[in-house]
Simulated scan of single mutants.
Amino acid sequence: MDRQPGWSVRLKLTLSYAGFLMLAGVLILTAVWVFLLRSYPSGMLVRSVLLRGFGPAVAAVLIFLLIFGLLGGWILAGRMLAPLDRITQATRTAADGSLSHRIRLPGRQDEFRELADTFDTMLTQLETHVAEQQRFAANASHELRTPLAISKALIDVARADPHHDSSELVDRLHTINTRAIDLTEALLLLSRANQRSFTRENVDLSLIAEQAAETLHPLAEKHGVTLHTSGDITTTTGSPALLLQLTTNLIHNAIVHNLPHHGTVWIHTSTRPTTAVLTIDNTGEHLTEQLVATLTEPFQRGTERIHTDQAGVGLGLALVKTITTAHNGTLTLHPRTTGGLNITVELPQPPQK
C-alpha cells in the first residue's frame, strides 16, 4: 500500500514527551505565581517587582524544559522503540523470502517481547508449512509423472511393433489412466479441504460409517476381512461429502492394510462431552511408533504392510488429516499391541440450542 510520508513514531513520542513536560512546567510555575500573589500585599508596585523578577526565571525554566524534553524524549523514545526496529527488520527479512530468521528478543516479558515471540512462532509455523508444501509439490509431480511416463513407454512399444496385441496395451493404459485420474481427484479434494470452502451442516457420523462400510463391503469380502460397525447417533457439524470421504478412506486403509486372511475391522462411533468420535481399529502386522507417525504424510503408503495391489494413490490418510483439520478436529494414530492400527477422529459437536 502506497502511503504519504509522515512523522516517525519516535518523533511523535519525543514531541509528546516534551509537550507534557512543558505543560507540567507551566502548571507548576502558574501555581508558584498564584502562591506569590497571595503571599504578598496587593499593590501595583509589588506585583510589578514580582513580575520583573519572576518573568525571566519562568522563561529560562520553560526553555530548559523544552530542550530537556526534546533531548530526553528523543533518547527515551529510541530506547523504547529499539525492539520495534528489530521486529521491523525481521519482517522485512521474511518478506524477502527468508523464513529461517528469528527475532529472539531478550529481556523480561512486555508487549514488545510478546509481539516478537508471537512473530517468531508464526515464522516457525510458516517455515514448516512452506517446507511441507514444497515436499508435497515435489511428491505430487513425481506421482503424476510416473503414470504419464509409463503410458508413453507403452505407446512407444506399440508404435515400434504394430503387430503387438493391442488389447493388452489398452487394458494397461486404462489401468494407468484410472490411477492418474484418481490421483488428480484426490489432489483436488485435498486442495478443497485445505481451503475449507464447504458448507457446514449437522452430520450423523454413525450413518456416515454405515454408508462407507456398506460401500466397501465387497472389497472387504475380496480381502477376507470382516467389518464390524457399532455406535449410537453421533452428531457433528461439517461437510457430509468430505466426512464420508474421510470415513471411506479410513475403512479402505484398514481393509487393504490388514492380515492376508481372516482380518477384522472395527468401526465405532461415540460421543464425549464436547466432541463426536469416530474410531477405526484393524488387525494387521505389528507397527512401530516411528512408522505410524509418518502415515499421514502425503504419498506415505507404508509399503512394507501392503499385501495387495490396492495401494491407492498415497493420499488416503493425508486427506483424512486435512479433512479433520478443516473441521477443527483432531486425528490420532496408535499401533495396536496385538498388531494393526487404531485411528481416532474427534470432531466438535454442534452447539446446543
Rank of each mutant, 00 (worst) to 15 (best):
P5V: 00
G6N: 08
S8A: 12
K12R: 15
T14G: 03
T14C: 08
M22I: 12
L29E: 04
F35Y: 12
L36F: 13
L36T: 05
G43V: 07
L45N: 12
R47I: 10
G53N: 09
G55Y: 15
G55Q: 15
G55H: 12
F64W: 11
L66N: 05
F68Y: 07
F68Q: 03
G73V: 03
W74E: 02
L84Y: 10
R86Y: 08
R86K: 15
T88E: 12
A95M: 12
D96K: 12
L99M: 08
R102E: 09
P106S: 09
G107H: 07
A116I: 07
D117M: 07
F119A: 07
T128L: 13
Q133P: 06
Q134F: 07
A140P: 03
H164Q: 13
D171A: 14
L173P: 03
H174T: 14
R179K: 11
S191F: 01
R192D: 01
A193F: 00
N194E: 15
N194V: 06
D204C: 09
L205P: 00
L207T: 10
T226M: 10
H228K: 12
I233M: 10
P240T: 05
L243Q: 00
N249A: 07
A254G: 04
H261F: 08
H262N: 13
H262P: 01
G263D: 01
H268K: 09
S270F: 06
T271H: 00
H286P: 06
L287F: 08
L291C: 07
Q300R: 14
Q300V: 15
G302Q: 00
G314E: 04
L317S: 02
T325S: 12
A326D: 05
T330P: 03
P335V: 02
G340F: 03
T344Q: 11
L347E: 02
Q352P: 04
K353S: 14
